[in-house]
Simulated scan of single mutants.
Amino acid sequence: MSELGQAKRIIFLKTADGQLFEVDEPVAMEFEIVKSFFDENEDAADDTVVPLPNVSAEPLAGIIEFCKAHVEFRAKGAAGKDEVKKFNAEYIKEKSNEQLKELILAANYLNIKEMLDFLTETIANRLKNKSVEYVRAFFGIENDFTPQEEEAVRKEYEWAFEGVDED
Rank of each mutant, 00 (worst) to 15 (best):
N97Y: 03
Y91E: 02
L52D: 14
E158V: 02
E149Q: 12
Q19G: 06
K68Q: 13
E121D: 12
V50R: 07
E158N: 09
K93A: 15
I104Y: 00
G77Q: 12
A44M: 10
A75T: 09
E90N: 15
S131I: 06
V23F: 03
R126G: 05
F161V: 09
A75Y: 07
E98Y: 00
V164L: 15
N97G: 09
K76V: 01
I112R: 09
D43T: 13
K14Q: 04
E121K: 05
Q6H: 08
T15Q: 07
D47E: 11
A152Y: 04
F145S: 11
E150R: 01
M1A: 09
N54P: 00
S56R: 13
A7I: 08
V23T: 02
I33N: 03
I141D: 14
L119P: 02
Y157D: 15
A152C: 04
V71H: 09
V71Q: 11
E166D: 13
E162A: 07
E150A: 06
K81G: 04
N111Q: 14
V153S: 11
R74S: 11
K95Q: 06
F138L: 05
V153K: 06
E25I: 00
V132A: 15
D47Q: 06
F73N: 12
K85W: 05
E94P: 03
A57I: 01
I112H: 10
M1C: 04
N54Q: 12
R154Y: 11
T120D: 00
G163V: 02
G163C: 03
M29N: 14
P51S: 07
R136P: 10
F138I: 05
P53L: 03
E98H: 12
N129S: 06
M115K: 04
C67I: 06
E25S: 08
T120F: 00
D43Y: 03
G62D: 04
T15A: 08
A79I: 11
F31T: 02
E121W: 01
E83A: 15
N125R: 15
F38I: 01
E151V: 02
S131K: 04
K35M: 06
E150D: 08
G18I: 03
V27T: 14
L52T: 06
I92D: 10
A44K: 11
S56N: 05
S2Q: 08
E90C: 10
N143S: 09
P59N: 15
A89M: 01
I141G: 03
G62P: 00
T120A: 00
F118N: 14
L127Q: 01
G18L: 01
